[in-house]
Amino acid sequence: MFPGWLQIALVVLLIVLLFGRGKISGLMGDVAKGITSFRKGLKDGIDEPEEEPKAVEDKKTIDGEVVKSEEKDKA
């Protein structure tokens, strides 16, 4: 069951009385700064070029570990 508009208004009034307007506006400013820096971090992460994997010569991988290949030339 969802709370009605009167219950929501009462909760908001109690929060404002307990913390005061200045404390709540300061908290909202901190939240806005956090969201802005998070978005900036996401944007900076996208702009960075991805590094291409280096080619491994004469080696094979098994479960992510590099091992020397022991292949012999068949002649």
Rank of each mutant, 00 (worst) to 15 (best):
S25D: 03
S69D: 14
E48L: 13
I46L: 14
I35K: 11
K68A: 15
V67Y: 06
K59N: 05
K74G: 05
L6P: 01
V12S: 08
G45E: 03
A55I: 09
S37F: 09
S37I: 10
D73R: 12
E50Y: 05
L6Q: 15
L27G: 15
L27Q: 08
L18E: 04
D47V: 11
V31W: 12
V56P: 00
E52S: 09
V31T: 07
K60N: 04
F38Q: 05
K33L: 09
S37T: 13
V67Q: 12
V11D: 06
G29A: 15
V31A: 14
E51Q: 10
D44C: 03
A9P: 01
E52G: 04
E52P: 00
L10N: 08
E50P: 01
I8A: 10
E71D: 13
I24F: 00
W5H: 04
K40I: 08
D63V: 00
V66A: 03
G64Q: 00
G45I: 03
G29Q: 11
V16G: 10
K54E: 13
S37Q: 12
K54T: 07
F2Q: 10
K68C: 01
A9D: 15
A32P: 00
K40E: 11
G45A: 14
V56E: 07
D73L: 14
K54A: 10
K68M: 04
F38S: 07
P53A: 05
V12F: 13
K54I: 02
L18G: 03
I15P: 00
A32M: 11
K43S: 13
K74M: 05
M28I: 14
V66L: 08
P53W: 01
P49W: 01
P53N: 04
V31R: 08
T61V: 08
L14C: 09
S69M: 07
K40G: 02
F38R: 07
S25V: 15
V11E: 12
A32T: 12
I62Q: 12
K40T: 11
D30G: 13
D30Y: 11
E48Q: 14
L13G: 11
K68T: 06
G34E: 01
S25K: 06
I24S: 00
K33S: 11
W5Y: 06
K59T: 06
E57M: 05
G64L: 00
K74Q: 10
G34C: 02
E52H: 04
G29R: 14
K59E: 12
D63Y: 01
A55Y: 05
V16N: 14
I24L: 09
G29L: 15
K68N: 10
I46V: 15
V67W: 03
P49Y: 02
P53Q: 04
V66H: 02
G4K: 13
G29Y: 06
S69C: 04
F19M: 02
L6M: 09
V11F: 12
M28R: 06
V31Q: 09
